[in-house]
Amino acid sequence: MTVDPDILLSARGLNLSFGAIPALVNVDADLWPGEMLAIVGESGSGKTTLLNVLSGKLRPQSGVVTYRDPAGALHDVHAMPQPALRALHRSDWGFVHQNPRENLRMAVSAGGNVGERLMAQGKRHYGHIREAAIDWLQQVEIDPARVDDLPRTFSGGMLQRLQIARTLVTHPRLVFMDEPTGGLDVSVQARLLDLIRSLVRRLGIAAVLVTHDLAVARLLADRIIVMQRGEVVEAGLTDQVLDDPAHPYTQLLVSSVLQA
């Protein structure tokens, strides 16, 4: 298989079914550095499955996911030894869950939550770790005075921002996001969208974003993949796909959006 020399993540021929239900059917996907790719589709279309397979959390029945590390070497994500994959998830990759409580340690202070990835990487200077935590709280617009507070005293939007700070503290090049704005009030959602967009852009992070919200995809993503019953029915530039949808399912999705 030849791979574009710049490509960050590349998937070819992914197949996975849960019993008789196809979750992925011959799916291809590519991601270049600094690019945001949205995976859209309704519930059960296979978008979260695709995210989990791309990030190595779930093994496909066939197909290959290739990742290029910062040194330029290619890795078959599903052939990587578990320690290497876990190390990757702690350093060059990040994962933002829809529910921040799945990722955060609710009994550990905000600073400890942000600092954990640094400590996992072997950072052993308390003062520096704390400084980094405070800096990241500011970057995600959380009052640095709350660095010692427990996350359980935070609102939903703050928890999601704390999760983002915790994920980005190691400067990953690739972040996987599963409905990061789901379950939040619209005003909180808008603030988070702006934050994700500016952080991703400023830090040059590439991201794979799963969302069922086409408006979120339009505002954040450069490219979009539309999935239905495990198949990619349409892919391309976000504005092309949303303004000039070709596939019947995409046309249905686009026409089903409520206009505010």
Binding site: R105, G111, G112
Partner: peptide, 14 residues
């Protein structure tokens, strides 16, 4: 993977 143990020490110092 012992980062978590240091999180406990971090919390104590904090």
């Amino acid at each position: 993977e012992y980062g978590l143990m240091h999180v406990k020490l971090y919390e104590d110092i904090t």
